[in-house]
Design a protein around this nucleic acid. Structure first.
Length: 728
RNA sequence: GGGCGAUUAGCUCAGUUGGUAGAGCAGCGCUUUUACACAGCGAAGGUCGGGGGUUCAAAUCCCUCAUCGCCCACCA
């Protein structure tokens, strides 16, 4: 026994230490160049004509730090990538970071204000952009370093940043092409104005919040109107009711009525419109087309005047008379007081309704009419394949026809529902950090082109919605608009793995961009993961104090344990409960594997000659079993059931290989029958390498650490990372 | 108001095409016999949310109710 122990690597005499292995292994992988498929082909690891497998990493915010959600995403994607790489595919996983326009700019603005008490207007556009860019550059290494700590086998030579030159160019090109196709237009429309962020936002960036407010009944000439927003009512000179409402049949469309209103007598005009709900309130309302979407549409149908009442900062304009200059949040009380004193307030009720707020800033949205850039989703245009259809139709079709498959498929319905309700997408933002709209103005003329038309042309100061550039991500990272080899080889990408919470923001927008600009889908498969929650299924949050930091877990239990805990039990589309106990359990497993290896190696040091092996029936059974597990694990990975694949491999190794096979092998290994012993030694070695391989996608470090310590004759590759997946 | 999902052992969840329930963690008892105490062995624990139906057979399919959660929606 003594001699056998010394024959194997002495590291095995100590428990497995993730800390002492992980960084060195990652460095070794990175330096080998095998994260880059070109190197794999060059060195003969991958066949020149091999099928490709590609994933783009959903780019984390440059200024962010790694949280469990990222860790889960990296674990899933890396497992897929490692599996396909070992299966001989030309495998590419592209890293990148996102400038995250609004989020980043407001973070920097906040910091500057805290430190120097300066606003962005004090600094000016150029200076602010410089500071934001510096900040982004500084903090980008943090997230990259953390991504590496997870063991991610990303091809760093292809690293992309949403605001780097190539991506910037792609964005400009996309805008111009869509404009020329008539898909992008500039229009005066009612948009969602965020008074705090001082920018418009898209419909998808709105979050509804339930609020308890007062609902007021006001006397408006012969009518009683209901409103929850008296501060918008100054300009109201149209009173609207349903044409079929019997209560108001004596009033006719277009009829003019003199009445006393907040700031004195006005002339109101009766409008009949079917948008009115006869059941709600009194069935009569006045309209404020400048600050309400429904009202805007009614005004549009009847060609009515529109007047702005509230400015961009939420301050009442001169139309409000004595209330002008007041902020709407303060003015409401005073207005109600005046209405009451004039006898115009009939009653007030408690009222619960949904208020639209901006996702980023939390501010209550104030609809405003503004000239903005939009993408027309209902306009039929010619696609690259020659067909003429709308973006909506094309987007729906990709999923309906299975060009893009979504796992879990129940999200198909969610996707359709979103598309059916989709309205033109407002893509211009009034912030500075981001891709600037490639439109140029001069004396009322507009030119849309990537570079300035020359002297005297002023570029539109607006920037683009961050999701516009994100929508190009699968192909802007591959070199588009140039026709690169990468684009030909790796697009459409194989899988897009991301959280279900950005199905609309991102997944749908990528489908939109790719089908129109390239004439193909951006990816064949969507894999939606859930949110990582705590052990009790609660959301992780600072206030609950239940945040589990992936880097802490990596330091404490190792990356492999952290990865496994995020993979097992994580079915697509379902939230993942995570507790420290769970991670600890998988740390023990890594050590178990280490000890299994130690046992097998120390008991097979004298088994070099394999030429004349005769397997017993049981030996063959064991080998068949190994093969069966491999088949199942492979099937589960390919079917995106990683939670099952990981569990099965785990189960096999612990409960079958360790508990049964090793135990029953002890008498044979210690016995006198040399032939039987040799056969079993070969079988055990086979089980070990097979187990390391099927576990590698899930726990790359410990499996590679063991692989590096195997005798040469057991290995078919210098690194497990590029070893051949066992036959299925 | 519409849609989706969940309800299985103390906790968190598996259970792929229907065949008399499984895992991890926690907990209980025993074991330091060298691969591993970051371990092993053993016992305990569930009328699979309620009700109805289809079937020889249902946690698994259908209907219905209940509770919880999520998403979507321009009722002033």
């Amino acid at each position: 026994m003594e001699s056998k122990e010394t024959a194997i690597n002495p590291d095995f005499l100590q428990p497995y230490s993730p800390k002492d292995n992980e960084d060195a292994l990652y460095k070794k992988w990175e330096e080998s160049g095998y994260f880059n498929p070109d190197v794999c082909v060059e060195k003969g690891v991958t066949a020149k004509d091999a099928e490709s497998f590609s994933i783009v990493l959903p780019p984390p915010n440059v200024t962010g730090t790694l949280h469990m959600g990222h860790a889960a995403m990296l674990a899933v994607e890396d497992a897929l990538v490692r599996y396909h790489r070992m299966n001989g595919k030309k495998t590419l996983w592209i890293p990148g970071t996102d400038s995250a326009a609004i989020a980043t700019q407001s973070k920097v603005e906040g910091d500057i204000y805290k430190k120097d008490k300066l606003t962005r207007h004090d600094l000016g556009r150029e200076e602010l952009l410089k500071r934001v860019a510096d900040f982004a550059e500084q903090s980008k290494d943090t997230i990259i370093g953390q991504t590496k700590a997870m063991g991610s086998s990303l091809d760093w030579s292809r690293y992309a940043y949403t605001l780097d030159d190539k991506r910037y160019r792609a964005v400009m090109e996309a805008f111009v092409r869509m404009y020329e196709a008539g898909l992008i237009y500039r229009g005066e429309r009612i948009v969602n104005w965020d008074p705090k962020g001082q920018t418009t936002i898209s419909d998808d960036e709105i979050v509804y919040e339930e609020r308890k407010e007062k609902f007021y009944y006001l006397k408006y000439g012969p009518f009683t109107i209901g409103t929850s927003r008296p501060e918008t009512k100054f300009g109201d000179k149209y009173v609207v009711m349903h044409p079929d409402d019997a209560r108001y049949k004596d009033f006719s469309h277009g009829q003019q009525i003199e009445l006393e209103w907040i700031n004195g007598p006005i002339t109101a005009t009766v409008i009949k419109d079917e948008a009115i709900d006869m059941e709600f309130g009194t069935g009569v309302m006045t309209i404020t087309p400048w600050h309400d979407v429904t009202d805007f549409e009614i005004a549009g149908r009847h060609n009515l005047d529109k007047e702005q009442v509230i400015d961009e900062r939420g301050i009442l304009l001169p139309i409000a008379g004595e209330f002008a200059g007041q902020h709407i949040s303060k003015a409401r009380e005073a207005i109600i007081e005046k209405l009451r004193s004039k006898g115009l307030l009939e009653k007030e009720e408690d009222y619960t309704h949904n208020v639209s707020t901006a996702e980023r800033t939390g501010a209550v949205i104030e609809p405003q009419i503004k000239a903005q850039w939009f993408i027309a989703v209902n306009k039929a245009v010619a696609f690259p394949d020659g067909r003429v259809m709308t973006l909506k139709e094309r987007m729906r079709e990709t999923v309906e026809k299975g060009e893009v498959k979504i796992a879990p498929d129940r999200f198909n319905k969610t996707y359709y529902h979103w598309i059916d309700n989709l309205r033109d997408w407002n893509i211009s933002r009034q912030i500075w950090f981001g891709h600037r709209v490639p439109a140029w103005f001069k004396e009322g003329e507009v030119k849309v082109q990537t570079d300035s038309p020359g002297e005297g042309w002023e570029q539109d100061p607006d920037t683009l919605d961050t999701w516009f550039s994100s929508g190009l991500w699968t192909f802007s990272t591959l070199g588009w608009p140039e026709e690169t080899d990468d684009l030909r080889t790796y697009h459409p990408t194989s899988v897009l793995e991301t959280g279900y919470d950005i199905l609309f923001f991102w997944v749908a927008r990528m489908i939109l961009m790719s089908t129109f600009l390239l004439g193909e889908v951006p990816f064949k498969q969507v894999y939606l993961h859930g949110l990582v929650r705590d052990g009790q299924g609660r959301k992780m949050s600072k206030s609950l104090g239940n945040i589990i930091n992936p880097l802490d877990m990596i330091a404490k239990y190792g990356t492999d344990a952290t990865r496994l805990s995020l993979l097992i039990g994580a079915a697509p589309g379902n939230d993942v409960p995570l507790s420290e106990d769970k991670i600890r359990g998988y740390k023990n497993f890594a050590n178990k594997l280490w000890n299994i290896s130690r046992f097998i190696l120390s008991n097979t040091t004298d088994s070099k000659d394999s030429a004349t092996v005769e397997y017993s029936a049981r030996d063959q059974e064991i080998l068949a079993e190994m093969k069966k597990v491999t088949t199942e694990v492979s099937g589960d990975i390919e079917g995106f059931r990683l939670y099952l694949a990981g569990e099965k491999a785990y189960h096999y190794v612990w409960d079958e290989l360790a508990a049964n096979i090793l135990e029953e092998s002890k008498p044979i290994l210690n016995g006198e029958d040399v032939k039987t012993k040799l056969a079993r030694q070969m079988v055990l070695r086979e089980c070990l390498t097979g187990s390391l391989k099927i576990l590698h996608p899930f726990m790359p470090f410990v499996t590679e650490a063991i692989w590096q310590r195997l005798p040469e004759e057991m290995k078919d590759a210098e690194m497990l990372m590029i070893a051949k997946w066992p036959s299925k």
